[in-house]
């Protein structure tokens, strides 16, 4: 049973197709990288999978259940690219944000997660007072605290410093390798895709490519889109690390 299944999904905005007949499945334990140019519908696809947007037609299943029947949201950790409308005056502390929506609020787990993300000293600070990097760390802590079975990241490392970015990727790679956590990562960072992801979905309003890295590396179409040198770099990084390092 796939963790995520998308069948024939079409999403329109103002009468224009943003996504057209998208179909793919994500098996348990997979690290899937989703790439594509700006405006290709990557974030829209993620929002359709999570029920934030409603598709014009098509079907999404999470853990074998249709999206409309799915209730076990604690199995999913989501980190958006940027909080859609973070009010800098929002009076929520980092601790309140991380524990948001948890049915059982456990202090030990909270302390452990804060330490893991190196933000133990920020627990009582207001989220709006933090730098963007610190906010993203807090949001990642929120996504991870439930030890979810599926992690969905939408351009998570945009504007993060290299050290935090490295920490982010090694942590999620470790969770994927050691705990079998399924990861869906939307990113522009092609180097990271080669290093960590095992499968690749190339999107440009429709699925242009979906498959393993071996298939990607031998695809002439992808060489045409990425250029032979970029394709070579991605494939070289993947061969060196085998995906998820």
């Amino acid at each position: 049973m796939p963790v995520v299944r998308v069948d024939n999904l079409t999403f329109r905005y103002n009468g224009i197709d943003v996504l057209s007949n998208i179909s793919f499945a994500v098996e348990k334990g997979l690290y899937l990288g989703i790439v594509g140019p700006n405006g290709s519908g990557k974030s829209t696809l993620i929002k359709n999978i999570l029920g934030i947007l409603r598709p014009e037609k098509g079907r999404v299943e999470l853990f074998g259940r249709p999206l409309s029947d799915f209730r076990q949201w604690e199995r999913i950790g989501y980190l958006p690219q940027r909080l859609s409308a973070l009010n800098t005056h929002f009076p929520g502390t980092v601790e309140e944000i991380i524990q948001m929506g948890l049915s059982k609020k456990d202090q030990d787990t909270l302390t452990r997660t804060l330490k893991m993300m190196a933000i133990a000293h920020l627990g009582s600070r207001l989220i709006g007072e933090l730098s963007y990097g610190e906010q993203q760390r807090a949001m990642l802590a929120r996504a991870l605290i439930r030890r979810p079975e599926l992690l969905i990241f939408d351009e998570p490392t945009t504007a993060l410093d290299p050290e935090t970015r490295e920490m982010f990727y090694s942590l999620t790679g470790e969770m994927n390798r050691q705990e079998g956590t399924t990861v869906i990562l939307v990113t522009h960072d092609i180097g990271v895709i080669g290093e960590y992801a095992r499968n690749l979905l190339y999107l440009d309003k429709k699925v242009i490519f979906s498959g393993t890295f071996k298939e990607f590396c031998s695809s002439r179409d992808m060489a045409g889109i990425f250029g032979p040198s970029s394709q070579h770099i991605i494939c070289h990084q993947h061969d060196r690390t085998g995906g998820t390092i």
């Binding site: 929002k47 999570l50 029920g51 934030i52 799915f70 209730r71 949201w73 999913i76 989501y78 958006p80 909080l83 859609s84 409308a85 973070l86 929002f90 929520g92 309140e96 944000i97 948001m100 929506g101 989220i127």
Partner: peptide, 19 residues
């Protein structure tokens, strides 16, 4: 309370939590 807190913080995030 939890739902209102999440919704006030970020509506899309609240939606992704099944609220």
């Amino acid at each position: 309370y939890d739902d209102l807190f999440a919704l006030t913080f970020d509506q899309e995030l609240a939606c992704s939590m099944g609220i």
